[in-house]
């Protein structure tokens, strides 16, 4: 069973709480049932949870059909089951859209003014290995093996070299060759492809200031995360985190104050979430910290964009963390 905690921006009920006020400390977000939660995906004002049995639940904004079929239903208050064409293997959200990939390799999209799931033309091979979908803002990509297919906005050439307003259907963005793609991390108008060796295999779009792929291509063992306008690189071999971007609101990773091993990190729209592993006996623990733009309480009670990490929670077991648009999610799995 998974327990979810959420905080931050909640104007459309996207935190899955019983109200729609912003909160600045982790609040229990109650999902019916006792299943294990696989993933939380967040759009501009809606949130979707994928359960390990392939079902989906969502909450928040439905003005553009992000979650439900009724156009009169402007907001989904509290976690509500989302009807899906078939069991889901992965889910991602764009600004006002939701995309799922089902067990048969079909890709379905809703939202953006479409009030039901519509099938994309590409079908992936359900027997061809892991399929994953990633989304941010106006773009989605699906990954299988060494191939990345993307669609959506191409105004910054994030999908293909020839600039155009949008690419309607999944189109090959890159092929990483002999090493399979591990994941894709996406900003507002750029994306970075990371292979199974932890190497950045591809980057395209309006890349943040100071980031040059050719300076990164030889590095391995990297964990890369993107906020909307910045890239953050955790070198797991060197135990360093490097950030690229303007950092006008303290989004760049604070280089001081991390005296314990990093266990995980992720990013929301303009804030980061860091998990550290405290080793002190007899009570080893995990701390969750936030940094960056926290005006909606998504980095904790100190809402200014002050530099440094803000401790938001301490847990006896390793938490999983997810970031949304000015929202932060902490998941604890209970045996």
């Amino acid at each position: 069973m998974s327990c979810m905690y959420s905080f931050g921006s909640n104007g459309q009920g996207q935190l899955g709480l019983a109200h729609d006020r912003d909160v600045d400390t982790p609040q229990r977000s109650i999902l019916a049932g006792d299943g294990r939660m696989s993933k939380i995906a967040c759009g501009g004002n809606h949130s979707v949870v994928l359960m390990s049995n392939g079902t989906l639940a969502g909450c928040g904004d439905n003005r553009r059909g992000e979650l439900q079929g009724e156009c009169a239903l402007q907001q989904v208050r509290g976690w509500t089951a989302i009807e899906v064409p078939a069991p889901v293997v992965d889910v991602a959200c764009g600004w006002d859209t939701t995309v799922v990939v089902d067990t048969q390799g079909h890709i379905w999209q809703r939202g953006g003014g479409r009030y039901e799931f519509e099938q994309r033309q590409l079908r992936l091979d359900p027997a061809g290995g892991r399929i994953a979908v990633y989304g941010c803002f106006q773009n989605f990509v699906v990954v299988q093996g060494s191939q990345v297919y993307g669609w959506g906005s191409n105004t910054k050439c994030q999908l293909q070299a020839r600039k155009c307003r949008s690419v309607a259907e999944p189109t090959l963005v890159c092929d990483s060759g002999s090493v399979a793609v591990d994941y894709v991390t996406m900003g507002k108008d750029f994306l970075v492809v990371v292979d199974k060796n932890g190497r950045m295999a591809h980057a395209s779009g309006r890349l943040p200031a100071g980031f040059h792929l050719e300076q990164q291509e030889e590095r391995v063992g990297l964990e890369v995360r993107c906020m909307w306008t910045s890239i953050h690189v955790w070198d797991t071999c060197q135990s360093t985190v490097e950030s690229f971007g303007r950092g006008t609101h303290a989004q760049l990773f604070p280089q001081v104050g991390v005296g314990v091993p990093i266990a995980d990190f992720t990013a929301g729209s303009e804030h980061g979430i860091l998990v550290t592993a405290g080793q002190e006996e007899p009570h080893p623990h995990y701390d969750v910290h936030c940094w960056g733009w926290g005006e909606h309480g998504n980095c904790g009670p100190q809402r200014g964009s002050q530099p440094g990490l803000q401790l938001v929670g301490r847990y006896a077991t390793r938490p999983r963390v997810f970031g949304g648009c000015a929202s932060t999610w902490i998941v604890l799995d209970q045996r």
Partner: peptide, 13 residues
């Protein structure tokens, strides 16, 4: 209709 330009903000508005 409103003669307004809009663009998504990272806060959701």
């Amino acid at each position: 209709e409103s003669q307004m330009f809009t663009y998504p903000c990272p806060c959701g508005d």
